[in-house]
């Protein structure tokens, strides 16, 4: 019988200062709350964070930025996290921006074992500055190297013991891409099921990309729209 990848975070010794962490989610939706808190509690700092965005100051990977654990951020957008903007302007946080689709594809390339991608999005803008270019079939492209990370953290709706994953609606977003691009990938699942419980046709991320599965404690933040309703 196959050994289950389900484990407790206390048994994992993976976190180190200065490591590169890739985090799934989009505006905090689909970001793994339990894994983010685990990283916060570990006290590690100097993280290079790769994420679609900087979340909100109290939501998703935004928490790591707010607590000043991140020294470098690779993202497409930080507008929803003023703390990230403040740290960038003070020089405490180095931010590298990529167009959203390019960033997603750089992560996917990292996960699919490619060296990079050829993309023309951003030609004619400051995005092309310093980029290596190549002409293929008469069209000019930038070479964008693939992205990988020491650790990838993602969330999903259901995981089985092999690490096969399914997602929930728009919380899928960057998670399948990030899952494949980690040297070590931890999936936080709302529900852990036995192997065989997920239909082969519905599995989105194959267990081969996932090293560890942990049970989620659930979202521990309030969404912006919830706070607006309360006020």
């Amino acid at each position: 019988m196959r050994k289950s990848k389900l484990c407790h975070l206390d048994d994992l010794d993976l976190l180190k200062d200065g490591m590169t962490i890739m985090c799934g989610g989009f505006g905090g939706v689909g970001s793994p709350p339990t894994l983010i808190d685990w990283i916060l509690d570990s006290g590690i700092k100097g993280i290079t964070l790769i994420s679609n965005d900087a979340g909100f100051p109290w939501i998703g990977p935004g928490k790591l930025v707010t607590e000043k654990r991140v020294k470098r951020l690779i993202a497409s957008h930080i507008g929803s996290n003023p703390e990230a903007g403040k740290q960038m302007h003070s020089g405490d946080l180095e931010v590298t921006f990529y167009p959203q689709g390019t960033l997603a594809e750089k992560i996917r390339a990292g996960g699919m074992g490619l060296g990079g991608i050829l993309v023309d999005v951003g030609l004619g803008t400051s995005i092309e500055e310093g980029k290596e270019k190549v002409t293929v079939n008469g069209r000019e492209y930038m070479i964008e190297p693939a992205l990988q990370a020491d650790l990838a953290i993602i969330s999903c709706k259901k995981a089985d013991g092999y690490g096969n994953l399914i997602y929930d609606q728009s919380a899928r977003n960057t998670n399948p891409l990030v899952a494949s691009a980690g040297n070590i990938t931890i999936a936080e699942a709302d529900e852990v099921v036995d192997i065989g419980q997920l239909h082969p046709e519905e599995i989105i991320t194959q267990g081969v990309f996932v090293d560890h599965v942990v049970q989620s404690k659930g979202v521990d933040w309030k969404w912006v729209w919830e706070l607006k309703q309360e006020s």
Partner: peptide
């Protein structure tokens, strides 16, 4: 909370809708 637009606000879906990852979302654009 898991069904939102790109700004993070709750939305619904219509008949014929589908979900996919962000790479595919931009693949159809490019």
């Amino acid at each position: 909370g898991n069904l939102s637009n790109a700004g993070g606000y709750p939305v619904s879906i219509i008949k014929g809708a589908s979900f996919f990852d962000s790479a595919e979302a931009f693949g159809m654009v490019r």
